[in-house]
Amino acid sequence: MFDVAAIIIVLAAALVLYRAIRGPMVCDRVLAVNVIGTKTVVLLALIGFIYKRPYFLDIALVYALINFIATIAFLKYREMGRLD
């Protein structure tokens, strides 16, 4: 059950990767990478359950936080032109 779900999510991430590569603008790419990041969080949780090692959830938690940080840093750069 978890395997099938994980494969579906990986395929969905592959579709989004197409948008990240093609994306006419930088914003599209950031959006796509943000979506890949959220899919990664789910995938990590699922892998933890596949291996019956639920402590992988800690990585998922860290990921959910970090994904947000990278997006916000990028947006700050786009709006202000610098980061500091």
């Binding site: 059950m1 978890f2 779900a5 579906i8 999510i9 395929l11 969905a12 991430a13 579709l15 989004v16 197409y18 948008r19 603008m25 914003c27 599209d28 959006l31 796509a32 979506v35 899919k39 789910v42």
Partner: peptide, 22 residues
């Protein structure tokens, strides 16, 4: 729950590919 969620994530990916603008 799992497969409903997978379905919606997949649909979101299709939407991101198909929709015309940002």
């Amino acid at each position: 729950f799992l497969f409903t969620g997978c379905f919606f994530m997949f649909v979101a990916s299709i939407g991101i590919i198909r929709f015309p603008d940002f």
